[in-house]
Computed example of a mutant assay.
Amino acid sequence: MKNVSDIIEQYIKEILSENSVIELKRSELAEKFQCVPSQINYVLKTRFSIERGYIVESKRGGGGYIRVIKVTPNTHSELIDEMINLIDIHITQNTSESMIIRLLEEGIINKREAKLMISAIDRSVLDLSIPLRDEVRANILKAMLQALKYKM
């Protein structure tokens, strides 16, 4: 059974499938899904990040809104370049997984490849102390992304 966050994410993605830019009201969404507004914030922060291909803008106050924009690159190579540029000298596991999920959603990789990539950057595999673990993860992810740019 899906949790509230999954349902909210699915709802927003369905609306985005019709338009690449949408404006929502946090309070209306919270009322619709019978949750607190902070639940909406959580979904937007974790599931609609730049790593996943979205820009979220918000204006607070009485007439406030949340604008969600789906960013669509022209080519797979362009998307991979954007991802490589987003990776600093270190990257967290969550951010890495978000990038890999986007690659899967964009059809650049399949489910099996996504699982392999996520396994390779997992904190249990990279049994190092922070910040070294996040630096090694960044290097591994950059190398995998570079490999994806060129067809075999």
Rank of each mutant, 00 (worst) to 15 (best):
M1I: 12
K2V: 11
V4D: 12
I7K: 04
I8G: 05
Q10Y: 14
I12P: 05
I15M: 13
L16E: 12
S20W: 04
I22S: 06
S27F: 04
E31W: 10
K32H: 09
C35K: 01
N41K: 11
N41D: 15
V43Y: 00
K45L: 15
S49A: 08
R52E: 15
R52L: 12
G53P: 04
Y54E: 11
E57T: 09
K59H: 02
G63L: 05
I66C: 01
R67W: 05
V68P: 07
I69S: 11
L79S: 00
E82H: 03
E82M: 03
M83G: 13
H90A: 14
N94W: 07
E97W: 00
E97Y: 03
S98I: 11
I101P: 01
E106M: 15
G107R: 09
N110Q: 11
N110H: 09
E113I: 00
E113D: 06
K115M: 14
L116Y: 15
S119G: 14
A120T: 13
I121S: 03
D122G: 10
L126G: 10
P131E: 12
L132R: 04
D134G: 08
V136Q: 01
R137E: 12
M144W: 05
Q146T: 04
L148K: 03
K149Y: 03
K149C: 00
